[in-house]
Amino acid sequence: MSNRNDQPDMQRRDFIGKTVLAAGAATIAPGVLLTVANASSTEGVSSQVRWGMLIDTDKCADDCSACVQACNKENGIDLIDRPQGQSDEMWNAQRPQWIRKVKLRDIQTGEISQLPMMCQHCEHPPCVDVCPTGASFKRADGIVMVDRHICIGCRYCMMACPYKARSFIHQDVAEQVTGAPRGKGCVESCNLCAGRIDAGQQTTACQDACNRDGHKAILFGDLKDPNSEIAQALKAHHSRQIRADLELNTGVRYTNV
């Protein structure tokens, strides 16, 4: 049995990574560039960092969808139109969702919690374990991503993900943003705004939107830095993993659940 931390076809990925790093960016479609972490540097991302999120469900407003809308705009998901004649049921089942709002109701007390749910960026991601081509992978800094160059659309990762955090692109993508290339037949999910982080920014689009609306329910940062705001918050408040029983050591944690 292979080690759960092993990732398939590492030699191929290393070759692709070094080739793209040498170029700084690769053209994958007219007008669309696939950029890589720290493209101006040969150092790449570091395992000294682990990016993560802490979400305070008490601050997540029931009628607010700012995080969802910001994610859709950041990644060009809002550019996809509903296919003509498609039913509500089919559209809701097939439309891409990198982040969605989930309601939890306590059976005993009736208390309702609001959870923004996205890829949990596991330390031991099941999606990586089952991917036959190595398209699903975890970066050294803990961000779980999909390499669209080698994704064959088998959707094993979608079945393996206990959080239903991945989407499959069912239709042609006529329009997309340069920083988030997308294409029919590939799987995709939240990447913690890796493009922004690699460019030196310190916040995600969903966090910024939540802050602008005054809720401040999402906190993003380096889990390994004891002086970071998120690390200090995790020390000060009890937090939980979703499906902690799976022992995936998720990079996304929740308080007041």
Rank of each mutant, 00 (worst) to 15 (best):
L104E: 07
Q94E: 13
Q108Y: 06
L115T: 05
S113F: 10
D88I: 11
P96E: 07
R105A: 06
N92C: 08
Q108M: 10
R100V: 00
I112Q: 11
H121C: 00
R100E: 13
T109C: 06
P96I: 13
K103H: 06
H121R: 02
P96S: 08
M117R: 02
C119Y: 12
Q86I: 14
I112K: 14
Q86M: 15
Q94T: 15
D106S: 08
N92T: 12
Q108T: 11
P116L: 09
P116Y: 12
Q114I: 15
M117P: 03
I99W: 01
V102N: 02
L115K: 10
A93M: 10
I99T: 03
H121D: 00
I99M: 15
H121Y: 04
R95D: 04
Q114F: 11
Q97M: 10
W91T: 01
Q86N: 00
P116E: 03
S113M: 11
G110E: 02
S87V: 06
K101R: 14
K101L: 13
I112S: 08
I112E: 14
K103N: 12
G85S: 02
D106Q: 10
T109Q: 05
R105K: 15
D88T: 11
Q94I: 09
W91G: 04
D106R: 06
E111S: 06
C122R: 01
E89C: 06
G85Y: 00
Q86H: 03
K101G: 09
D88Q: 13
Q120G: 01
L104A: 13
T109I: 03
N92W: 08
R100W: 06
G110A: 01
K103C: 04
N92L: 12
Q97N: 08
G85C: 06
I107V: 11
P96F: 07
C119S: 14
R100M: 01
